[in-house]
Design a protein around this nucleic acid. Sequence first.
DNA 1: AACTTTATAAAATAAAAAGTTTACAAAGTG
DNA 2: CACTTTGTAAACTTTTTATTTTATAAAGTT
Lengths: 175, 175
Amino acid sequence: MSESLDHIESIFVDRIADNMNTYGVSSTVGRVLGIIYMHRKPMTLSELSEATGMSKTRMSQVVREMVELNIAEKVFEKGIRKDLYNVEQDYYQTFVSLFTSNWQKAIQKNKQFEKKIKEELHNITSKKELTIEDELKINDLLAEAKEWMEYYKWLANLVEFFESGEVFKHVPKPY
Amino acid sequence: MSESLDHIESIFVDRIADNMNTYGVSSTVGRVLGIIYMHRKPMTLSELSEATGMSKTRMSQVVREMVELNIAEKVFEKGIRKDLYNVEQDYYQTFVSLFTSNWQKAIQKNKQFEKKIKEELHNITSKKELTIEDELKINDLLAEAKEWMEYYKWLANLVEFFESGEVFKHVPKPY
DNA sequence: AACTTTATAAAATAAAAAGTTTACAAAGTG
DNA sequence: CACTTTGTAAACTTTTTATTTTATAAAGTT
């Protein structure tokens, strides 16, 4: 009997892993998250290794990635010296965490680009002998740069919209 | 002079490609989108092949993927018999397209899961001789299934929130 | 202090994804 | 209708990413 229950549980884990895939994280990360989630309490590297059938080293890499992504955390428990890892039990919060960590990284990277592109463009503009064609192209590129930066500003606002939980005011969690 | 302008243009393409990466599409897809975007008008497979330095076959695969993702379309032009491909010129729309096609796929897949899991669980419930423990576990799994389905309903609403453009009411495009 | 256990780096291997070459069918041209 | 161009499938190769094995350092035990 309880084998069939275990089987159902494993279907859940598969589903969670697949869902995670949509966020762009590897399916092993998704599976580990699913396993800890369904287990309802923190797990050690050895337990995860046992549960996934993968090496403990791999589990170490995976949980580290998860911690970086903000979807798992190391927790301590008196009397246990192994590291314990836990995950968020709220699907919505996990969605928000992944969405925001992905885009925040992208936004960060983009900052350097903004500086660089502005410099290069102004450098060129200030130099002599530009053909009419060049002028036009530069204007086009400047306009493009502006649009791009606005777009990234919008992305930053969007991230904030999620992170602050405001999104739930307009797309409410079913209750 | 105009080589340096070309160089700037190529920085843009890189940036666009990298941004696309955040949506989970491969960097070649991103680069092709960037190239067509900066070119300002539709391009053929041969032109893309020339621009990327990749084979025409690969370009064929890539544009097909882009069409499936709803971020490019085949267009016709009188007198040109090669297939021409164009991309959305609006960053925001591209964001929405990718976001929604990703999640719609996931939502679709999830429907089958819902049916399956409900069946399996009800099957088990209706069978005799369940230990107290099993009962508890089944209840837990049923509750979980319910939460999961609600979560996916929320995702569907969220997709609609983007697709309908309502998102822009609350996170306005800079103007 | 000698001995375990635990966690993780570094190197090696396996699996998956990206890209190319070859081949061929469908459509366009003279 | 013979000839070219175009698009894509199928098989193959290369590159990248996942995963394991080996090795080592840090911490816990006796």
